[in-house]
Amino acid sequence: MRGRDARVGILFAMPWIMGFLIFMAYPLVASLVTSFTNFSILRPPSFIGIDNYKELFHDQVFYKSLGNTLLYVLGAVPLTTVAAIALALLLNTKVKGMSFYRTMFFLPTLVPMVALGTLFLWVFNGDYGLLKAGFAKVHMSSPNWLGDPAWSKWTLILISMWGCGQAMVIYLAGLQDVPVSLYEAAELDGAKAWAKTKNVTLPMISPVILFNVVMGIIGALQIFAVPYIMFPNGAPARSAYFYAMYLYDNAFQYQRMGYASAMGWVLFLITLTLTLIALKLSNKHVHYESN
């Protein structure tokens, strides 16, 4: 019986195991090997031991881009998590026109990056921007969101809010799985709305929250497209230069694929560490029905 169970389990997982072996195993191993070589894509790699990693530890731009990225993760992940849950809760109420609202909130994730980039360049413009005009209305001076090195990262963190539609959809789907009976029981106990949310809803969707937080960390650590469009080369003065941008530049602008691979694997370790911390912290709070 045991052996049969195991066989069924592996059989069900087979597509992924095959896919992993065919499409992922080789590229992953190859990139790890590459990180110990001097490789320009165009010339055959030559083995240089841990030179790339040693160079990384002395590389000022590596630290700069890593610092920028970690700050972004710390800012954007909590912000979008709270925003997405709040929105999902709001959108899960039985109010007329909900289909419409849900679509509205999801829309920004559909707008192509180019359009999003040009729009936000205008919204945050330090001279004629929408935000500056808003500040002026209440007689406050607004910072130069894009041009001031002290502000550019915060601008991006703020912008990350518009992308919370994706997580929101996942929460919405998660909320559908919360049994109505639990709410009824809580109501009988005289629980108020907030207590219901705290004691019923959040524990019930905690596996989904964990999913979104982990994916949020992974995604935020690899942030690339929006700053790439809005802050070319991380200007001003590399204040918006992120890890993935530096990695990309090394790989394809500077033709240092070996170095870029080393960067990739260092990022892997950082991501892994942060994810494990998130998993550890969540252990007590994530509630699985099936266990």
Partner: peptide, 10 residues
């Protein structure tokens, strides 16, 4: 420098 940056962003 602040003035130049804000001017130039326009």
């Amino acid at each position: 420098s602040k003035e130049v940056q804000s001017f130039q962003s326009g």
